[in-house]
Amino acid sequence: MRKFFPVEELARDERFTQITMRQSEADPRTVLLAEPTGKRPKTNRLTPDRPDASEAARSLMHGIFVGEIQALEGAGRTCFDFETGSGDAPDTVPFALKLDMARQAWDEARHVEISVKLSDWMGSEIGQFAENTVLFEVACSNDPVLRLAGVNRALEGLAIDVFTTMKEFGDMAGDPYLEFCEDWMLADEVTHVKMGSDWLRRVTENDPERRKNALEFQSVVDKIFSFGGTRSDSNESPIGLARRFRELAGFTNTEVQEIADVSLKALEERKAFSAASLNDGDTEHSETGTGTEQLADA
């Protein structure tokens, strides 16, 4: 079986349409800029009292669904791509780490099934929204430690934020299925982050340079996963930073604050890009036929 599978060749049927992060970021339209009339809301947080709440929740739920597929693929690849060994070198991983990745793949497969049923419940069809493939892209590193940083800590950390937002949405809307399912999946994500943190620490115990590189990679991924400020502490972001659950997952206060800072920076950069695009009306630099991230629409 092939190792180190490229993102362009992920198995999807004709229902799916994939876009890259670059294509997503090329969309100059935004909900973040205030109009002179002040008509746009002061908060973009995803709550049931938003007029577009149902549509935004459906879009985010589909984003969760494709994210779970890519997380399943990432964990599965890490089980298979590397030989079993001490993990001291980037071409091997300990057998126990593979077992944890296998358990995670099992969890993610269950999450995919739950997400499909929730999407049915909310009136969405499989593939109804574009699939951003950036989540799997961070799972393509040749160094398993970078995968732990990118997938288990950054991607699964994002999942904690998203599931917390959706769980609270279900609670406020009185939707028992949404609240219950998101709560159960959230518990798994906390475990996945913890596994990544523990293994990253153990595998790099005698290699501080490798650990430093992994944490720097995670910081880059955390900024990408802020999706231009779609996730941050600011009320302008639809998804908040779930500080309490991140603490339970093993993030230190300093690490959480770093993620908060990088997310706010992404938000400000996104607003500046949109303002510049709207002011000069120049979209020729954008790629034709590319699009906005559906999470951003929320």
């Binding site: 909310m122 009136g123 969405s124 009185g174």
Partner: peptide, 16 residues
């Protein structure tokens, strides 16, 4: 028209 989509919206506003 996806009926379930509109049922979900109606439930969000009227209760599940």
């Amino acid at each position: 028209v996806n009926q379930q989509r509109w049922l979900y919206n109606f439930r969000n506003r009227h209760g599940f």
